[in-house]
Computed example of a mutant assay.
Amino acid sequence: MPGSKPLDPSSSPRAMLGAELRHQRVQARLTQGELGRPLFVSGSFIGQLESGTRRMQPEYATYFDETFKTNGYFLRNCEALKTSKYPDHFAEAAEAEAIATVIKEYAPLLIPGLLQTEGYARAVFRAYNPTAVEETIEELITARLERANLLKHPTKPMVWTVLDEAVLRRPVGGPAVMAEALRHVARLIRKHRIIVQVLPLSAGAHAALEGTLKLMAFDDAPPLAYLQSMGSGRLLDDPATVARHELTYDLVGASALSPETSLALLESVAEDYEHAEQQP
């Protein structure tokens, strides 16, 4: 059968695997919901597997091979796709981010990875891994900077970030690193590549006090929400849960400064860091 060949890893393998799943499901005259029910997953989750926005897990692949009599095709290729340059808790979110059409993020502690400079990323990873060899740190930095290639397209994905004012005030890497990092974000804003708002400390209590929130939308799949905490993360697809987090993001944005005022604050704080660096 055509689907029995291993996937070519250089040719969007997850999308190819998803396309084969869709083909087999349609051939079997099953709806997405019917296919997902024995796995205790929603039809929308099956749709995300078919579109390549979710990573296929071995237990799902085994079930698909048994259901469609595909002689281990899904499991073989699922195992081949397991390697990732990102930590396990973030790998699936990073892969979804790469094909998202809209990315919205509330960042309470750090400049988001997509917007980081090399110096800022280095300071973050060294703080996370104080005894790691330099080669490990360099690999982490390279992977993070490669994610920023998404921003080379002039308009897609649409990136809208709300930065807590604490992100601006925390001198990650020292004044010179912070000045460079904030200037980098400001340049992306002035190029009309990203939208950024700052949530001022004076806003007090707000809807996202519990932590980081990333929302991703896609052309051909339901939206996802990603919640991250120390050394762990959860990618969520339940429609009601995602809708609740979308409301949270909207409430945070409503409490934040306007994009224009936020840019002025970013550049003002960057200037303060530059002056601090010049002090003897």
Rank of each mutant, 00 (worst) to 15 (best):
residue 88 D to T: 05
residue 231 G to A: 05
residue 182 L to D: 04
residue 42 S to R: 00
residue 171 P to M: 03
residue 58 P to Y: 00
residue 12 S to F: 12
residue 140 L to S: 05
residue 44 S to I: 07
residue 11 S to H: 11
residue 51 S to R: 01
residue 129 N to M: 14
residue 208 A to R: 08
residue 31 T to N: 09
residue 31 T to S: 15
residue 257 L to N: 03
residue 93 A to M: 15
residue 204 G to S: 10
residue 140 L to P: 00
residue 113 G to V: 12
residue 114 L to I: 08
residue 87 P to T: 13
residue 12 S to Q: 13
residue 1 M to H: 09
residue 166 A to R: 06
residue 228 Q to S: 11
residue 13 P to N: 09
residue 155 T to Y: 10
residue 160 W to E: 05
residue 185 V to F: 01
residue 15 A to E: 14
residue 113 G to T: 14
residue 273 Y to N: 04
residue 196 V to C: 02
residue 2 P to W: 11
residue 117 T to P: 00
residue 108 P to I: 10
residue 83 T to R: 07
residue 212 T to G: 11
residue 207 A to V: 08
residue 164 D to W: 00
residue 8 D to Q: 08
residue 38 P to S: 04
residue 254 A to M: 06
residue 237 D to A: 08
residue 118 E to I: 04
residue 18 G to N: 03
residue 131 T to S: 13
residue 160 W to M: 03
residue 74 F to Y: 08
residue 242 V to E: 03
residue 241 T to L: 13
residue 156 K to E: 11
residue 153 H to N: 13
residue 105 E to R: 04
residue 30 L to V: 03
residue 128 Y to W: 13
residue 107 A to Y: 00
residue 92 E to F: 12
residue 181 A to M: 04
residue 1 M to R: 15
residue 20 E to K: 15
residue 111 I to R: 05
residue 171 P to I: 01
residue 23 H to D: 15
residue 227 L to K: 00
residue 227 L to G: 01
residue 106 Y to D: 08
residue 83 T to Y: 07
residue 158 M to V: 12
residue 91 A to V: 13
residue 103 I to N: 00
residue 83 T to K: 13
residue 31 T to M: 10
residue 220 D to P: 13
residue 102 V to F: 09
residue 221 A to W: 00
residue 108 P to N: 11
residue 140 L to G: 03
residue 44 S to F: 04
residue 280 P to I: 09
residue 165 E to V: 04
residue 219 D to H: 06
residue 195 I to F: 15
residue 226 Y to L: 03
residue 213 L to Q: 10
residue 201 L to T: 13
residue 231 G to N: 01
residue 217 A to T: 02
residue 28 A to M: 12
residue 40 F to E: 01
residue 273 Y to C: 08
residue 259 P to I: 06
residue 168 L to C: 10
residue 102 V to E: 09
residue 279 Q to D: 13
residue 57 Q to P: 10
residue 7 L to S: 07
residue 14 R to T: 10
residue 270 A to Y: 01
residue 176 A to K: 11
residue 202 S to N: 12
residue 251 L to N: 05
residue 235 L to K: 06
residue 157 P to G: 06
residue 5 K to F: 09
residue 87 P to H: 11
residue 161 T to N: 01
residue 268 S to H: 15
residue 8 D to P: 12
residue 175 P to W: 02
residue 238 D to W: 05
residue 179 A to T: 02
residue 271 E to R: 05
residue 198 V to E: 03
residue 38 P to N: 01
residue 258 S to W: 00
residue 130 P to L: 11
residue 111 I to V: 15
residue 118 E to Q: 04
residue 61 A to F: 07
residue 175 P to Q: 01
residue 68 F to H: 04
residue 206 H to R: 09
residue 47 G to L: 09
residue 145 L to M: 15
residue 237 D to N: 06
residue 201 L to F: 07
residue 103 I to K: 01
residue 138 E to S: 08
residue 131 T to F: 10
residue 29 R to I: 08
residue 88 D to V: 14
residue 280 P to T: 11
residue 95 E to D: 05
residue 153 H to S: 15
residue 271 E to L: 06
